[in-house]
């Protein structure tokens, strides 16, 4: 740890994963086995992975098995307590909550995964270019990142949702627009240190161009950081989405979402209609916990790869 410790900036504490010493990663296979083994030994990581699979099955396969009408509520069963044909009760519009939870999981998972991947890939490209070339390009790109990070996400989103009235695709684009900032900064930090390594100098000496260095050396060597960042970004996107839904600034209320169900249910908390609040709350928290568990485990696994080298 001594090489990693010392004057670590808290921004960089999470960056400890990744950044292998060595050349092009594809040459060796054993580090991946080590990462995989460490990951599999971590019981919490397997719990997280299991939860993610469970949530996907629940949201995408569940509605195919358990049919409920989520287009029209049944007014005979408004605020129905759990029991009978309503295992988790009904909400204030008579929708079956168990069925609604399943359908409502889809946008969260779709947005989370899509935004997580796209924003990290985008941030990766910007960060690698910024860190590798340095100079005015680096200053320009990093100021753009600073500006983006200085605008609080949720304020910006309430503002934007007011203008655009987003659908699923637009919401994803807006989320990507703000989510690439942190990955870009993280990858830039890695690229800054990687570009001074001997193997990069060697490629330069052999006449390798910038694009070769960035694509074949910088980016593959940040793979650990990238995987960890994607996982945390997925969790974060689901969190931000649920906050927006809770504040009523995300998808239109006609689309079932966990955050939206919570927003509807919280008004009845005082009446003791717990089934309108807690099932959705549990779904959101479990999903975020699952992705965070996997992210933490990946981080540890990549740390081990560094330590045992």
């Amino acid at each position: 740890m001594s090489a990693l410790g010392g004057g670590l900036n808290p921004r960089e504490i999470e960056l400890e994963a990744g950044a292998a010493e060595g050349g092009e990663i594809a040459v060796t296979g054993s580090p991946w086995k080590l990462v995989g083994r460490t990951f599999a030994q971590n019981k919490l990581a397997l719990v997280g992975l299991g939860l993610i699979v469970l949530m996907f099955l629940f949201s995408f396969i569940g509605p195919l098995i358990y049919h409920t009408n989520q287009t029209y509520g049944n007014i005979d069963f408004v605020n129905q307590a759990p029991g009978g044909s309503f295992p988790l009760g009904a909400d204030d519009e008579g929708y079956n909550i168990l069925g609604r939870l399943m359908v409502a999981g889809r946008p969260s998972l779709e947005v989370g995964l899509a935004v997580g991947f796209v924003s990290v890939v985008f941030g990766l490209i910007v960060g690698a270019i910024s860190g590798y070339f340095g100079g005015w390009l680096d200053s320009l790109l990093m100021r753009i990142v600073d500006i983006g990070l200085a605008i609080p996400i949720v304020l910006l989103f309430i503002f934007m949702a007011d203008i655009f009235k987003p659908d699923l695709l637009l919401l994803m684009i807006l989320l990507v627009l703000i989510s690439w900032l942190v990955p870009a900064r993280i990858v830039r930090g890695e690229a800054l240190s990687l570009r001074t390594r001997e193997y990069v100098q060697a490629v330069k000496g052999m006449g390798g161009g910038s694009s070769r260095i960035i694509l074949k050396h910088l980016i593959p060597n940040t793979i650990g950081t990238i995987m960890v960042t994607i996982t945390f970004q997925v969790a974060n996107s689901i969190l931000v989405l649920s906050i927006l839904q809770f504040l009523g600034s995300g998808l239109p209320p006609t689309t079932p979402t966990w955050g939206g169900m919570l927003e509807g249910g919280i008004a009845f908390l005082q009446d003791g209609y717990w089934w309108q609040v807690y099932p959705a709350l549990v779904c959101i928290v479990l999903t975020i916990v699952a992705f965070n568990l996997v992210g933490d485990a990946l981080q540890d696994a990549f740390d081990v790869r560094l330590q045992e080298r």
Binding site: S242, I266, V285
Partner: peptide
């Protein structure tokens, strides 16, 4: 700290209110 970190702020508030 892990549980708190994985909870949206409103979830913490709702549980405390309850």
């Amino acid at each position: 700290s892990f549980s708190l970190y994985s909870m949206p702020p409103y979830a913490i508030a709702i549980i405390l209110i309850q």
